[in-house]
Write a protein that binds this DNA or RNA. Structure first.
Length: 257
DNA sequence: TTAATGACTATCCGGATCGA
DNA sequence: TCGATCCGGATAGTCATTAA
């Protein structure tokens, strides 16, 4: 999918990219082999060839950060096959107040098949979050561009997010799935433990308050709730990716990594 | 309830093409 | 080579949506 992408080139949008695909130019190599491309002047063709060579170099070096900068966030989903193996799935819980007045209570991090839970007052530090981000190639959240990441960056000034960010909330909307994480999970038959089905973000706030008054079991349930939210982002991302490819990707023969 | 972002829409402007 | 035309990318403004 990534080597079929042309919208990162200055002056090429979705319509031109679609036209390229329809004319048989399905990937970077094919584009560069052509001596001329209809609708693109020879001078621009030379510039684009150079840009694609640079992009190929970064792809060969597995440099996801390059594509974070040159691709619109709307198109970061295209990076899933290439960088998904080293994706970091992230979900936070808070005290329920605004980022200025509140606190992060739990940070769930799922990477390489391993769940890590950072708890306020115990393991939750800026360094721990930064360490996970630095080791990942792709960040995947639900509504994280609006809520999780800005909240974390308010609580932990200087936290750097330099990797591409695939926000599943807006991806879901683009394929016609409205609603929050739980309702979309139900719609796509993504399972979670039955005793966690009734929980939501506000309940998570109450569980934290109960834990602070000494109820250890509340923390256990909160951690499991957060882990379910975080882990379920993986099958949700895969499902949404498939739908995005059908809707916005190249014709079937060109759909590769 | 608040804040912030993406989606959507309208408009503008630049670039490519084509004919004289 | 120049000018007219058209296409489409860029931009600005507005609206809808979601998180805890």
């Amino acid at each position: 999918m990534l080597t079929s992408t042309f919208v990162h080139l200055n002056g090429i949008g979705p319509a031109t990219e679609r036209r390229l695909w329809d004319s048989g130019i399905a990937d970077w190599n094919t584009f560069r082999r052509e001596t001329q491309v209809p609708g693109i002047s020879p001078a621009r063709k030379v510039a684009y060839d150079a840009d694609l060579t640079v992009a190929q170099t970064h792809l060969d070096r597995h440099n996801a950060r390059y594509f974070a900068d040159c691709l619109h966030t709307r198109d970061h989903w295209r990076l899933l096959p290439t960088f998904g193996a080293r994706a970091l799935y992230l979900d936070i819980e808070t005290t329920g107040l605004s980022a200025r007045d509140g606190q992060v209570t739990i940070v769930g991090l799922y990477r390489l098949g391993r769940m890590r839970t950072l708890i306020h007052g115990e393991s939750l530090t800026q360094a721990a979050i930064q360490d996970e981000l630095d080791q990942a190639d792709l960040l995947i959240t639900f509504f994280g561009t609006v809520f999780d990441i800005p909240y974390l960056q308010t609580c932990f000034a200087g936290l750097r997010v330099e990797i591409p960010h695939f926000d599943l909330c807006f991806a879901a909307r683009r394929v016609g799935l409205q609603g929050g994480l739980k309702s979309i999970e139900r719609e796509l038959d993504i399972a979670r433990e039955s005793d966690l089905l009734q929980l939501d973000g506000l309940e998570a706030v109450r569980l934290w308050q109960q834990y602070r008054t000494g109820q250890e079991a509340a923390l256990d349930q909160l951690v499991r709730y957060n882990a379910a939210d975080t882990r379920n982002l993986e099958p949700l991302a895969a499902c949404l990716y498939e739908q995005l490819v059908v809707r916005y990707g190249p014709p079937a023969p060109a759909r590769r990594g």
